[in-house]
Design a binder for these strands. Structure first.
Length: 639
DNA sequence: CGAACTGAGATTTTT
DNA sequence: TCTCAGTTCG
């Protein structure tokens, strides 16, 4: 029973309480994942069949981490519990019962780009001008409604004119999606929920299979996810939810904190365990984080304690320009690395993705090893193209895939030809185009045949060659060559799946559901790098040294056109809390008085978050760090 | 049909 | 400033 010894009293309580509902309120760095994995191990050691245990997370990364830990502790990887994200759980259930919802077993999963295209198409069909009504807004309205249990039929318009447009576009969008045998991200959850609700016999099957259900990051569940969980645990009531209201940062995506606040009401007799001992950060960092979060009203008051050292004061740097800020950060990072810190122990965080570019430039100038987490590898055109060839080869109905690649590389099949093909008027094609189209069909067929006897990575290599993309890009510009490199990176990525049994199924599914955090890094040899990422993607991670940049009013807290609602303000605060609590030893904050956004210079005031910190926690960092501004000039003079 | 040009909008955060 | 979608012209 030595796995219990490493736990503190509260953690142990959570681990040992196996029967009946349990809520673990776990602040940042209090050993949430550890408690969860130990609980799973405990259940198994007690004699529970591992296959009757389910653990649901939000990201693939979290699921993967849990899986690795459980496998390591069990010392075996067969008969392990089901550990997956909400979305991939949905995919699995929907695939098993695809006939019930009337889609192909290998239905396609639309990413947000595909979704946008389809929404626009639906708008055009319904004669709604995409310039007058933002497709993005319509898409997100549908998204929100779906995660609130609504459908195209039940949705009703209100006074807001946008809702009347949505009422028209939504059914059309659903129709197009069906035609393509596709589901979007929201469908993966809502279709699963409706399926289980409508078919008690299917629900009963899953209920009796999963007797112990764990939900990570419970504060981030939306209505559909919450209801889905309730259905799954309705028989045994063995639910263990883990979360922290202070880390709810996805309410813009429908995450509803009420779910965690109402837990005891929803599951009568629930036991609640609070984890308040932080093992991660210094006292100063926790103090600062608390000064930020305590100003929120929508929260249960709690304060983390730690036995860790007091630690160093927070470094605060006021830069003149964003360029100077980046330069300062790079200088500090270099210092740490020169002193022997591993690059991977350092992270630079920011509120919005566009801030990464200027940081990257500074890191490049100093030749620091870094990696931008969230570089959208799988949304790169060339990567999507190759994936579309593969998907289209397996599923000829997937119009969006076929459309992507039918003229890539150029085959002389333009808009007009494509329209004819999709209308089934192939005989109307001029002779040349007909031949071209036939060749294309043969190519897809060839890829499919090849795939049947080869691994995913071999097939992708084959696609790059057989389509002529290799030749075309290899002879092209530097940019083209980089594209080709990305395709080869995809080959490397795919080798991960080569030895699996249903390699292609799993490959398609995972690629579609992969978030950008998981896509790279783990399988790269150069993972010992400084990580640059948004605060959102840093949730759940920890680093020795953390830099939070761009602490400017309007940027962080972020503010767009109109004033933030109280609720939005509090979410920004929670985001800041998450950012601060990533740091183990030392936190660095910085802001720039001048920042260029859309090529327009903006003058900034320091973030309210900086002003909220007591002076004894903070020390201002030195003045001038535009050391390489000069260097850049010399560089140019030399030429 | 496709290359080249033009103008508008973008930058919150993600499965 | 950069990227994308739409339009024009060869």
């Amino acid at each position: 029973m030595n796995y219990l010894e490493s736990l503190n009293e509260m953690q142990k309580e959570a681990v040992l309480h196996t029967e009946g509902p349990l809520l673990v309120v776990a602040g940042a760095g209090t050993g949430k994942t550890k408690t969860l994995t130990h609980r799973i191990i405990h259940l198994i050691k007690k004699g529970t069949d591992p296959r009757s245990i389910l653990a649901i997370t939000f990201t693939n990364k979290a699921a993967k981490e849990m899986r690795e830990r459980v496998i390591a502790m069990l010392g075996t990887d067969d008969h392990i519990p089901t550990m997956s994200t909400f979305h991939s759980l949905g995919v699995r259930i929907l695939r098993d019962h695809h006939t019930k919802i009337g889609v192909n077993k290998y239905f396609n999963i639309l990413d947000s780009q595909d979704k946008g295209t389809l929404i626009k198409q639906a708008m055009r069909i319904q004669d709604i001008n995409p310039k007058e009504w933002e497709p993005r807004k319509i898409a997100s309205t549908i998204s929100r409604a779906k995660s609130n249990e609504e459908t195209a039929e039940t949705y009703t318009a209100n006074k807001n004119p946008l809702t009347s447009i949505v009422k028209i576009v939504w059914p059309e969008y659903e129709r197009l999606k069906r035609e393509e045998q596709s589901l979007d991200f929201d469908d993966l959850l809502s279709e699963t929920y409706f399926l289980l609700k409508k078919h008690p016999e299917i629900l009963a099957q899953y209920q009796s299979r999963w007797q112990y259900v764990h939900v990570d990051e419970y504060q981030d569940t939306n209505t559909i996810q919450y209801k889905l969980v309730r259905l799954l645990v309705d028989q045994h009531k063995n639910i263990c939810a883990v979360g922290d209201g202070d880390q709810n940062i996805y309410s813009w995506r429908g995450a509803d904190m009420k779910n965690i606040l109402n837990f005891e009401k929803d599951f009568p007799g629930a036991k609640v365990v609070l984890l308040e001992t932080n093992y991660r950060s210094t006292q100063i960092i926790l103090e600062a984080a608390h000064e930020i979060i305590k100003k929120n009203n929508e929260r249960i008051d709690k304060k983390l304690v730690t036995d860790n050292q007091e630690g160093k004061e927070i470094a605060l740097y006021e830069a003149f320009s964003a360029h100077q800020e980046a330069s300062w950060i790079a200088t500090q990072v270099k210092k740490y690395i020169d002193e022997g810190t591993e690059p991977k122990d350092i992270a630079v965080l920011f509120r919005t993705n566009f801030q990464s570019r200027i940081l990257e430039e500074a890191f490049l100038r100093k030749a620091l090893p870094y990696q931008v987490v969230g570089v959208k590898f799988f949304s790169r055109k060339e990567v999507k193209d190759v994936m579309s060839y593969l998907k289209a080869a397996f599923n000829n109905d997937s119009l969006s895939d076929v459309k992507r690649i039918i003229n890539e590389p150029k085959r002389g099949l333009g808009k007009v030809a494509v329209a004819k093909i999709f209308a089934g008027r192939i005989s109307d094609l001029p002779k040349k185009q007909l031949e071209s189209y036939q060749k294309f069909s043969e190519l897809l067929d060839d890829i499919y045949q090849f795939a049947l006897t080869h691994t995913p990575s071999d097939t992708i290599r084959h696609i790059v060659k057989a389509t002529g993309l290799e030749k075309k890009l290899g002879e092209g510009t530097d940019e083209d060559k980089e594209r080709l490199e990305n395709m080869k990176e995809l080959v490397t990525y795919a080798t991960k799946y080569d030895d699996l049994e249903n390699a292609y199924d799993i490959f398609f599914e995972e690629v579609a559901l992969l978030s950008d955090q998981d896509s790279l890094g783990s399988n790269r040899k150069d993972s010992n790098t400084v990580k640059l990422m948004t605060i959102h993607s840093s949730k759940g991670l920890e680093f020795k040294y953390v830099f939070v940049s761009g602490l400017e009013q309007g940027l962080f807290p972020s503010q767009r056109d109109d004033a933030l609602t109280k609720h939005e303000q509090e979410e920004e605060r929670r985001l800041c809390y998450v950012a601060f609590t990533r740091a183990k030893e030392m936190l660095h904050l910085s802001y720039a008085k001048l920042r260029t956004i859309y090529g327009q210079e903006r003058i900034n005031v320091p973030s309210e978050f900086v002003r909220d910190l007591s002076s004894h926690l903070v020390v201002e960092a030195g003045e001038n760090y535009d050391d390489d501004e000069g260097a850049v000039e010399t560089f140019y003079l030399d030429f």
